[in-house]
Amino acid sequence: MAKSIDVSDLNIYYGDFLAVEGVTMTIPSRSVTALIGPSGCGKSTFLRSLNRMHEVIPGARVEGKIVIDGQDLYGSEVDPVEVRRQIGMVFQRPNPFPTMSIYDNVLAGSRLNSKRLPKDRADEIVERSLTSANLWVEVKDRLNKPGQGLSGGQQQRLCIARAIAVEPQVLLMDEPCSALDPISTSAIEDLIHELKSDYTIVIVTHNMQQAARVSEDTAFFNLAGAGKPGNLVEMNPTRKIFSNPEEKATEAYISGRFG
């Protein structure tokens, strides 16, 4: 189920503006890769290009190659809708569908994939996904209540459950904890640890301790100055990045001597 991702010479544009330039990296499967870097360096943009969510913005486009399992995501015959079904995404702010119950939120993706879902199969998916997202115990008695009634941390775990309900190959997380309190953050981090045995996880974070805690590999993005494109400075095992980085800029950033 989990697949590695090969990115080569990726340029990402907003209209004519080159936002991210020349990224080449290999994201290993069944492991957590963290993307760190200052604001505006293009790490979120890069993440969104991994499941073709970047092009949802009018004028946005991508050049280069992203290959998963021998398949180029940006091949001319590839349907972006199909890509997004294979690569799940969790956003910065929890975004359960406001009018749907907890139960229906978890099933939203599965119902897109197969129109007729037998009740017992649906129940099974809901229980499995919520259990994987460490939310089952908290919500099993109120599955028919709206998802918006949950706390922020619970909503975010609901969104993770919704993303993994369709058993994607890859799970992308865009600062999933930045809107959460420390306790919810810790719950999500524990969850990431458990999920990495089944999924390839890429997480964008502003919190370097978090990157150090959850990830196997870390990629540091930087930009030369305002209005310049962001680029990948260094990608290495997390332990190496935080103890003995190859690049001066990486060291300056992680030790807080940045800028």
């Binding site: 199909e82 569908f97 993706g109």
Partner: peptide
């Protein structure tokens, strides 16, 4: 419609 909700649907692979 909040972009957040639209993107939630798109990221699930909604047409």
């Amino acid at each position: 419609t909040p972009t957040l909700n639209e993107e939630a649907a798109l990221a699930l692979g909604a047409t």
